[in-house]
Amino acid sequence: MKRLQDVEHHETEDLYYPTMCKVTGARQITDMEKWYELEMPEGTSLGHSPGQFVEVSAFGIGEAPISISSSPSKNGKFELCIRQVGTLTNVLKNYETGDMMGIRGPFGQGYPMDNLFGKDILIVAGGIGLVPLRSLINYVLDNRKNFGRLIILYGAKTPSELLFTEELKVWEERDDVELHVTVDQPDETWKGNTGVITTLIPSLDLKLNTTIAAITGPPVMYKFVVMSLKSKQLPDDQIYLSLERRMKCGVGKCGHCQINGVYCCQDGPVFNYADIKPLEEAL
């Protein structure tokens, strides 16, 4: 047990002061999502790893946990992509280049990159789940020779909800990326796969001993994707999931994001499936 006398003053932190970051780029990329590029003050770096998140704040409104969407290998700046679903995010949609955004973080556990080096990376992204996974994808692409295959499965409800369409095109054209995109509800222009994301899994040819899966999507998706991957005999500990909870403080204090005994903001949001499988509240 941690005791008061074990703690020195200098070891304590002002946990709730945001760093004001300048918006250096902003673009509405779908009806619901806006992309931002931000710059830390005085040339400092955010210093995140793929899968981590920040608390974004707007004064007078509040804070919300937002995944970091850029790779740490992108120097100097970082990117967020924010869906407008809540009070805060609906205000953030008015933020443009030059505005200042309050940032705390990065927080939580990202992907354990040491365990991923040399492996085949299977990305399973549902809807807005592509936002945090894009950080991992771009990290793999920036360090391409350190990884095996890069397989990206991406599902959206409709073609108009597909995120980062220009990057999707680039990934599509690259020989060293296997991209499979599907939509639940196609429109007349759609020529690709139709159906939920799990329909892309059975035909995959995976090397079981070297494949690491990284899954992010809406809460309902995880069980089904995990089931599909399990039916392909992928071992539990080669599956990583990024879970969504109400990560209010980001520093393991406020209690809102607790999943049984673990704090999503500290022990996650990226979890190894083998670790959270016993947790009743996880999936």
Binding site: E11, T12, E13, L15, V251, G252, K253, Q266
Partner: peptide, 8 residues
């Protein structure tokens, strides 16, 4: 309050 991130 003081384990993990120690709150000032």
């Amino acid at each position: 309050m003081l384990s993990g991130s120690a709150e000032s």
